[in-house]
């Protein structure tokens, strides 16, 4: 199949970008969306043009590196999948596809479709951990964790930190990302001692990084490749309230 692409081109962080139109020829339905971009890039390179820069790594939906808004939906709108797991069989021959980077003040574009998501790392560094040094940990079975809690913590911990939640949110809010971490650690007994300090520090860092606030529209949950639930945001809200009011 042949497709028309409208792709964002931007030289670097400090220049303004624009959309350019290019053709994707001889695309096979079995290609992933990123492999389709590979083909486009190979064609561009062979004709002496610069390829489009886009981030990807594992290409099996777990590393969270890919970050494309495809036809207005982060990761392209296939339920529970990242862009690397979106295949071209979901598109029609002759279709026009718009490809944009994540858009948020906290995720500046570095080039074309590549954004800087280090704000997420800063949020984790502010408190998204359990403060245990290596060594001296008690036996793994010393603290039993009920299966329900463990499973729920795992649901939250499944977050891959791709940032699609921010990209989809009309407010560019990072609440789903922060909530997933707060819930993951807050649901486990190991995370209890820092539970309330953690949430306060992480939310304050989130504000400082310039993310918007949550309006609970649910679009983050809809695009999340790991289908993290909005429920976790409510848990965060509760923990933060307790954290701020605790004497």
């Amino acid at each position: 199949m042949n497709l028309t692409l409208k792709i964002w081109r931007q030289k670097d962080r400090n220049t303004t970008g624009e959309f350019v139109t290019c053709q994707a020829r001889n695309i096979l339905p079995d290609m992933s969306f990123l492999e389709m971009l590979d083909v486009v890039n190979e064609d561009l390179t062979r004709s002496g043009h610069e390829p489009f820069a886009f981030d990807s790594d594992c290409r099996e939906g777990i590393c969270g590196t890919c970050s494309l808004v495809i036809n207005g939906i982060p990761h392209g709108g296939q339920k529970g999948a990242t862009a690397c797991q979106l295949h071209m069989r979901h598109f029609r021959d002759g279709q026009t596809i718009t490809v944009e980077p994540w858009r948020a003040k906290s995720f500046p574009v570095l080039r074309d479709l590549v954004v800087d998501r280090s704000a997420f790392d800063h949020i984790i560094a502010s408190g998204g951990f359990v403060s245990v040094n290596t060594g001296g940990a008690p036996d793994g079975n010393a603290l039993p964790v009920g299966k329900v809690d463990a499973d729920q913590a795992m649901d939250a911990a499944a977050c891959i930190g791709c940032g699609a939640c921010v990209a989809a949110c009309k407010n560019a809010s990072a609440m789903l990302f922060v909530a997933a971490k707060v819930a993951h650690l807050g649901l486990l007994p190991q995370g209890q001692s820092e539970r309330y300090q953690r949430v306060v520090k992480m939310v304050n860092m989130m504000d400082q990084e310039g993310f918007g606030a949550c309006t609970a529209t649910g679009s983050c949950e809809a695009v999340c490749p790991k289908e993290i639930s909005l429920d976790f945001i409510a848990q965060l809200n509760r923990d933060y309230l307790v954290g701020c009011l605790k004497p």
């Binding site: 207005g72 944009e100 649910g218």
Partner: peptide, 24 residues
């Protein structure tokens, strides 16, 4: 105002997924 500032450059194409008209 804060939410608006959080996304200075908008999308060319935006499809609302999973959110109700009321919420937006």
């Amino acid at each position: 105002a804060e939410n608006r500032a959080a996304r200075p450059i908008g999308y060319k194409r935006k499809k609302a997924l999973g959110s109700s008209y009321a919420s937006r």
